[in-house]
Simulated scan of single mutants.
Amino acid sequence: MRRMNFRTLLCMCLLSLPILVNAQQKLSPNESKVMVNGTSTLHDWRCKVEQLSGNLDVEKSGTTIKSIKLMDVTMIVKSMKSLKEDGKYYDSGMDKNVYKALDADKNPQITFVLKKINSIGANGEVNAIATVKIAGVAKDLPVVGVAKVLPNGSVKITGKKAFKMTDFKVDPPKAMLGAIKTGDDITVDFDLLFK
């Protein structure tokens, strides 16, 4: 039997190690969805964010996320559109109340910037802290999501976050001269695809 030379042995050892790949990826806005859900004295409501962008820098090994070095998402306030139960849009009057409450002229964007990763579980569950800025007020919030590497190398991050509008000094919107009031609690559902 021939003896293996050192170079061949080294190559075989290196090939048996998991390969870590750094990937900088951009948010695919047409394949991503952010929904803001809330309540009111009349009925539950929801708004879809139509314009968003973002960046992701991850270290992955095969289909597993090993670390997230950077993640940011920017949402345009005046692209938020109120949706009916059937998926059709309400008239723009509903949206104007949202833009007014969020002071969209002075603060046209909502931003999410990853600050710290606490843990990444074997199933892709990510426990993190993010700096969220709404209506000019920035707060650090705990966020939990699931990150998955797709077969084509894209990364999908899904989850939801509940908080109060007043946490960001936002007065819950009112309509019909105050006859309809929205609740303070909202939930943001996110389904983000980075390519």
Rank of each mutant, 00 (worst) to 15 (best):
E85M: 10
Y89C: 07
G54S: 11
E31Y: 04
M75Y: 04
V36P: 04
H43S: 02
E85F: 06
D103F: 01
K116D: 15
K78F: 06
Y90H: 15
K60M: 04
N118K: 13
K115A: 14
D95P: 00
T74R: 08
N55F: 03
D72F: 09
K88A: 12
F112C: 07
T64R: 08
S53P: 08
S53N: 14
K81I: 11
L27Y: 05
N37D: 02
L17Q: 13
L56T: 01
V98K: 01
K116C: 11
K88L: 10
K96H: 10
V21R: 06
L42K: 03
K96P: 06
I120K: 05
N97L: 02
C11K: 12
M94V: 12
A23S: 02
N37S: 11
I117R: 02
V36W: 00
S32Q: 06
G93C: 04
V98M: 13
Y89Q: 08
S28P: 00
E50D: 15
N118P: 00
K100T: 14
A101T: 07
K100C: 10
D44C: 03
A101S: 11
D103G: 02
L114Q: 11
E85N: 07
N107G: 01
L114W: 12
L15P: 01
I68E: 06
G62I: 12
S32C: 07
V34Y: 03
Q109A: 13
F112L: 14
N97T: 00
S40C: 08
I68P: 04
K60W: 01
L20K: 10
S61R: 02
V77I: 08
D44T: 07
G87F: 09
I76C: 04
K81C: 07
L70D: 08
Y99S: 02
L20E: 10
D103M: 06
L17Y: 10
I76V: 15
I76H: 04
K60P: 03
T39C: 05
R46V: 01
V36A: 02
K88R: 14
V77K: 01
D95H: 00
S16V: 15
K84D: 09
P108H: 07
S79Y: 08
E59V: 11
K69Q: 09
D103V: 05
N37P: 05
S32I: 00
M75I: 05
T41Y: 05
V21H: 07
C11A: 14
K115Q: 15
N37K: 13
C11H: 04
K48E: 15
K78M: 05
H43K: 01
K96R: 12
M35Y: 01
N123P: 03
D72Q: 14
Y90Q: 12
L20C: 10
V36T: 03
V21N: 03
K100D: 13
L14M: 12
M75E: 02
T39D: 10
K26H: 13
L52K: 01
N118M: 11
N22H: 10
L83D: 06
D95S: 07
K81R: 15
D105K: 13
S79C: 11
V113T: 15
Q109G: 01
N123E: 14
I120H: 00
G121H: 05
V34P: 03
